[in-house]
């Protein structure tokens, strides 16, 4: 399959597909970070995670509309930063509400959570369809995000992709610091390890659950905002990502944020590069086969902590 291309062509194909993979990687990481917090830390399988992401995307869409209709044009270039914060808050607030109304009653029934959040995702999709219509919507990128940087004659790097990667980096570092250093992070880890004991040292576990779930959903909202940079938003766009995201989280080792990032990188790069040479579904089959194989050898995922059991 490589025979039709010259060496320089191949190099630039790999470089550009690699970069496309990096953009995909960024969205994966943002999605998976939220999911890793909710699934890895709380053990809740949130099938509606994709819809929380889309909520962030629609929030971004609305913000860009408000900016273009009501605010002077000079401010438009800044809309994305406002949208990012609003997307985080909207998805986080909805997450906190859902945790209160639904999830907290289901902590001891993981399979029921799966069904309930699946139902939630259907409800949310229909709501989006009713409110925003079935057609996909897109945002107009501000000028400074358009275009690309030409590295060589054949290799071009799109600026919006770079920007999405920058956001991902900031969010990933922020989440890492939150989980490692902040009081909420330490309390979350204590609750994850031993819920009754965490309560017996003075941690309000119900409150920690709500904040953790809200944080995970809020990060999904940020993923949605970033998603508008590289694709258009429809009611069911979130579903396309949810399976891949679970794959990333399980492959990386559910309780390790570093593992999540490493596995997102591997999977997105493998897919993006193979998609160019093979068909999309063949690329997926190969990726899944490799992941299944590795998980059979290492059921705990790529990274896991070494401690006495």
């Amino acid at each position: 399959m490589f025979a039709d291309y010259t060496m320089t062509e191949l190099t630039s194909i790999f470089a550009m597909q690699g970069f496309a993979g990096l953009t995909l990687f960024s969205v994966f990481v943002l999605m998976a970070l939220g999911l890793a917090i909710i699934f890895g830390q709380m053990g809740v399988i949130n099938m509606a995670h994709g819809e929380f992401m889309i909520l962030g995307a629609y929030t971004t869409y609305l913000t860009s509309n408000v900016f273009s209709s009501y605010l002077p044009e000079s401010l438009y270039s800044l809309y994305f930063f406002v949208a990012l914060i609003l997307a985080f808050l909207a998805a986080g607030a909805l997450g906190a509400f859902i945790e209160w109304a639904m999830i907290r009653h289901l902590y001891k029934r993981p399979l029921d959570t799966l069904l309930a959040t699946w139902g939630l995702s259907l409800i949310m999709q229909q709501l989006y369809r009713t409110i925003f219509g079935p057609r996909e919507v897109g945002v107009t990128l501000p000028d400074w995000l358009m275009g690309s940087i030409a590295l060589t004659d054949m290799v071009e790097i799109p600026i919006n992709g770079l920007f999405v990667m920058a956001i991902t980096l900031v969010v990933a570092v922020g989440v890492g610091l939150t989980m490692q250093k902040s009081r909420l992070g330490k309390q979350t880890r204590a609750v994850v390890q031993n819920r009754p004991m965490a309560s017996a040292v003075g941690i309000n576990t119900a409150r920690v659950d709500r904040l953790t779930f809200a944080l995970g959903c809020g990060i999904a909202g940020i993923a949605g905002a970033a998603f508008t940079m590289i694709g258009s938003t429809g009611p069911t766009s979130g579903q396309l990502y949810i399976v891949d995201t679970f794959l990333v989280v399980v492959f990386g080792g559910a309780s390790s944020l570093v593992g999540t990032i490493a596995s997102a990188f591997t999977i997105s790069q493998a897919q993006s590069t193979m998609e160019f040479f093979l068909s999309g579904s063949m690329a997926k089959v190969l990726t899944l086969l490799v992941v299944v194989g590795i998980l059979m050898l290492r059921p705990q995922g790529l990274f896991s902590l070494k401690i006495r059991k």
Binding site: R189, N194, V201
Partner: peptide
């Protein structure tokens, strides 16, 4: 204050972090 049977410390957290979880209520 409670010290359970089998100690039940948070094994993946550092010693310092373990003590810090006890500070929550203060």
């Amino acid at each position: 204050g409670f010290v359970p049977q089998g100690r039940m410390i948070f094994s993946t957290m550092t010693v310092k972090e373990n003590i810090e979880t006890g500070l929550t209520s203060t």
